[in-house]
């Protein structure tokens, strides 16, 4: 298991809804079909208005992001229940989101799929981090390391194990809740 996630941060504000994470016009792609999953990844966060976000999360013509870490304000992932949202972020190469708060279904979908660590943090970070700044997230201590400062993340509790196992199905198989062979 990866103990640390490090790399460049992408920074967004408050109330980033699922239409901005993956616009509805791309929801015909089915996440369980591998080539369609890659498409979804290529469109991750393309719903952010260019006027506010001139630097794109995934560059035009590419399928992967150079930002494995997203820093967000409050209510990240609000709006629809589309699981395409965490899946698109992860398909692009994002591993962790650190937000002031989350909308319920997005948070739940991160855990159910196990594709992203949705960490909450006590203070607002979007104003403190530049897009492209190198960050380290220590999953063992559940802290965000910025330069030589360590900021505690709100522990994910039981959900952390589920995400580490790769989602609820893998977790249920690993722990014997459902037969491993199914």
């Amino acid at each position: 298991m990866t103990k640390r996630i490090f790399g460049k941060a992408y920074v967004v504000g408050d109330n980033i809804d699922t239409d901005q994470i993956i616009p509805a016009q791309y929801l015909m792609y089915v996440p369980t079909v591998p080539e369609e999953l890659e498409k979804l990844g290529s469109y991750a966060l393309c719903g952010l208005p260019e006027s506010l976000y001139p630097l794109r999360f995934v560059e035009a013509g590419k399928t992967k992001t150079e930002y494995p870490i997203i820093i967000a304000g409050k209510n990240f992932g609000c709006g629809s229940s589309r699981e395409h949202a965490p899946i698109a972020l992860a398909a692009a190469g994002c591993r962790v989101v650190i937000a002031k708060s989350y909308a319920r279904i997005f948070f739940r979908n991160c855990i159910a799929t196990g594709v992203l660590f949705p960490y909450e943090i006590g203070e607002r970070f979007p104003e403190k981090i530049e897009i492209g700044q190198e960050l380290v997230v220590d999953l063992e201590t559940e802290t965000l390391l910025v330069a030589d400062h360590a900021y505690p993340l709100k522990p994910l509790g039981d959900a952390k194990e589920v995400i580490e196992a790769g989602g609820i199905f893998n977790y249920a198989k690993k722990t014997g809740m459902i037969p491993a062979g199914s």
Binding site: T32, S80, S81, R82, E83, N109, A112, T113, I168, F169
Partner: peptide, 27 residues
């Protein structure tokens, strides 16, 4: 349970109704 956030509409009928993702719905 419905794979759509507006599943909560059915709460109008004295029901517990909520939206879930594909993975939970698969479960």
């Amino acid at each position: 349970f419905g794979t759509d956030s507006h599943t909560c509409t059915a709460g109008a009928f004295n029901q517990f109704a909520t939206g879930i993702g594909n993975t939970d719905a698969g479960f």
